[in-house]
Each structure stands twice: as structure tokens, then as C-alpha cells.
Amino acid sequence: MTEREIRASFVNCSKGEAGRLRLPAAFADVPWAELDFLGWRDPGAPDRGYLVVPRADRPVGVALRASQNINRSFTKTTLCSLCLTGHPGSDVSLLAARRAGAAGRQGDSVGAYMCADLACPLYLRGRKQSRLVVRYREGLPLAERVARMRGNLDAFLEKVLDGAR
């Protein structure tokens, strides 16, 4: 995807906001073949994150905000609700997205606990490792884990898009 396509994909922020958002630092080196979606956190605004998901008709981009008031334990394991990767509690964040359309303009939002770095596809493929001392191995084949993640992601996106319907 091009920078222009990514900026045009955002459904829950203004065109101006989408035009000002910072793309990932290594955007030119994004491993597109290994990604089911592009997710990143804004290094200049640590409470902001972004997801861009290729869909059948067009890519869908969602701006996210990290919750500020959650103290997560370093000693407990927390699961990402998208990819189900186990992380120390500090590596999973509650990320909220304004709903698209009128509902979002009125302040309605949806949230989910996600990998704090939004690198779910890389965790599933073993290209990135959780910082857990004891890692859990899942018996499902990669294709099924990816399909499950996509289903979880699609369910989250449907909640965001429901505000525009």
C-alpha cells in the first residue's frame, strides 16, 4: 500500500488528522508479505496507535488511543484479544477507537486489549518474540491462527464501522 492509500483508508478521524499522522519510521521496509494488517504506535505521541487492514473492497484504517489509567502487572500474563499472544501485562494495552460516523463524533468508542506494539502478525509467524519467560505453544497450524486473528480483527472493525451505519 502506498502512503496515499493508507492516509485515505482512515474511517474514524478527519482527513486532516489522517494527513498529519506519522507513518511507521521504516515504512519503506515494511514486510508486506508477512502482514495481515499494518499496525504501529506513534513514537511522537505514545498514546496513539494505528491499524490499516486490507479488506475485500478497500483498506480500512483505524486511529487508536491507549488508555492512560491502567496499571498492568509485570508478573502476570495478559493475552492480546486479536492474536492471543501471551505477554507480560505491560506489553498489552487497552486501545480504544472512536466509532466511525456520527456515533464517533458524539464520543462513542470501542476498545480491546491488543499487543502494545500492534505487531500481531509478526508474533504469530515467530518473527517477533514475546518477553514472557515461559512461552506458551499452541497446537493450531499457522493458517488457522492467522484466520482466527483476522476474525477477531474483523469483529473489532465491525464495531468501529457500525457507528457509520
Rank of each mutant, 00 (worst) to 15 (best):
G107A: 01
R65C: 06
L38Q: 00
F27Y: 12
D154M: 04
R72H: 13
W32K: 06
A155D: 13
L64A: 08
D108V: 15
T78E: 06
D91P: 02
D108Q: 15
L118T: 02
L157Y: 07
L35M: 11
C13R: 00
R4W: 01
L124T: 10
G16H: 04
F10S: 04
A45Y: 10
R150P: 01
D36M: 01
R125E: 09
E5M: 06
N69W: 13
P141S: 09
C13I: 07
G61A: 05
A33H: 12
I70Q: 14
I70E: 15
G151A: 11
R135G: 08
R20C: 10
R65S: 11
S109P: 00
G19L: 05
D154P: 03
D57P: 04
R41D: 02
D29H: 11
A103E: 13
A112H: 00
L38A: 01
A164I: 09
V30Y: 02
L142H: 05
M1P: 11
L95R: 02
V160A: 00
F156N: 02
G107T: 02
A116F: 01
L51S: 03
R7Q: 07
A164C: 10
L51C: 04
A56F: 10
D29C: 07
V53D: 04
G139D: 11
T85K: 07
P59K: 10
G44P: 06
A18R: 06
R20S: 13
A63K: 10
L140N: 12
V133P: 03
I6A: 06
G163I: 09
V62N: 03
V62L: 07
V60F: 14
S81M: 13
N71A: 13
A97P: 03
A96Y: 08
T77R: 10
P121E: 00
G126C: 08
A33Q: 14
V30Q: 07
E5S: 09
P24D: 06
S73R: 04
A33M: 08
E158M: 12
K76G: 02
E5F: 01
Y123I: 06
Q129I: 00
A103H: 08
R58A: 15
L38S: 00
L124A: 14
D47S: 14
L153R: 10
A8P: 00
G44Y: 09
D36L: 03
S109D: 01
C83P: 04
L118E: 03
R99S: 05
R41A: 05
P31F: 09
L79T: 04
L161C: 11
A66L: 07
R65F: 06
L35W: 06
L79D: 03
N71L: 14
V62K: 05
P43A: 03
E138M: 12
K128T: 01
A8W: 04
V30I: 14
Y50R: 01
R7Y: 05
G163A: 12
L132C: 13
V133Y: 10
H87D: 00
C83W: 02
S67E: 15
G107M: 01
D47K: 13
E3K: 13
V146C: 05
D154T: 11
R58F: 06
E34H: 09
D91V: 01
D154R: 07
R22T: 15
P46M: 13
A119F: 05
D29E: 15
